[in-house]
Simulated assay, not measured.
Amino acid sequence: MKTRLTCPCGDQMKGADEDELVQKVQEHLAENHPDHEYSRDEILFMAY
């Protein structure tokens, strides 16, 4: 299970599970990078 992702901007996100990680990453993108949208599969591909 992948629960961590580091954004190219340097912010690190961690979720208790993949669902929480995806939610946190999508919230981060909406707040900080509104011109970028990624699907769940794309987020999990970049996660570790």
Rank of each mutant, 00 (worst) to 15 (best):
V25P: 00
E18V: 08
L21R: 01
K2F: 12
F45H: 12
S39L: 08
D41H: 12
E18K: 13
E31Y: 01
M13V: 09
L5G: 06
V22P: 01
G15D: 02
M1K: 13
Q12L: 03
E31F: 04
M46C: 13
Y48W: 07
A47H: 02
D17P: 06
A16N: 09
T6I: 15
R4K: 15
Q12S: 15
R4P: 00
P8H: 11
Q23F: 09
K2Q: 14
V22G: 07
V25C: 00
D35Q: 12
K14V: 12
A30S: 10
E27V: 08
V22R: 02
G15Q: 02
C9K: 10
M46H: 10
E31G: 05
D11H: 13
C9R: 09
K24H: 06
A30K: 14
L21Y: 03
K14Q: 15
V25I: 09
E31C: 02
K14M: 08
A30E: 05
Y38G: 03
E18G: 15
D35H: 12
E31Q: 13
H36P: 00
Q12N: 11
P34Q: 06
Q26E: 04
A16P: 00
E20K: 04
M46N: 10
L44R: 07
L5C: 10
K14T: 14
D11W: 04
T6D: 07
E20T: 05
D35P: 00
I43T: 04
P34Y: 04
E27C: 02
H33C: 13
P8W: 09
H36S: 10
V25M: 06
F45V: 06
K24P: 00
A30T: 08
A47W: 02
L44S: 09
M1Y: 11
C9M: 09
Q26W: 01
Q23W: 01
E37K: 14
L29N: 10
S39Y: 06
E27W: 01
T6Y: 02
A47Y: 03
E31L: 12
M1I: 14
V22N: 01
A30I: 00
G15S: 05
Q23G: 04
C7G: 10
C9I: 05
T6N: 10
R40H: 08
V22Q: 02
L29E: 03
Y48Q: 15
E31P: 00
L29C: 06
S39N: 08
N32A: 11
D35T: 13
D11R: 13
P34L: 02
E20G: 05
A16M: 06
Q23C: 06
E20Q: 12
A47N: 02
E18F: 06
H33G: 07
T6A: 14
G15V: 05
M1D: 13
I43H: 00
E42D: 12
E27G: 05
E18D: 14
K24A: 10
Q12G: 14
K14W: 01
T3Y: 00
H36L: 15
D17M: 07
V22W: 02
E18L: 06
M46D: 08
I43A: 01
E20S: 08
D17F: 08
K14S: 12
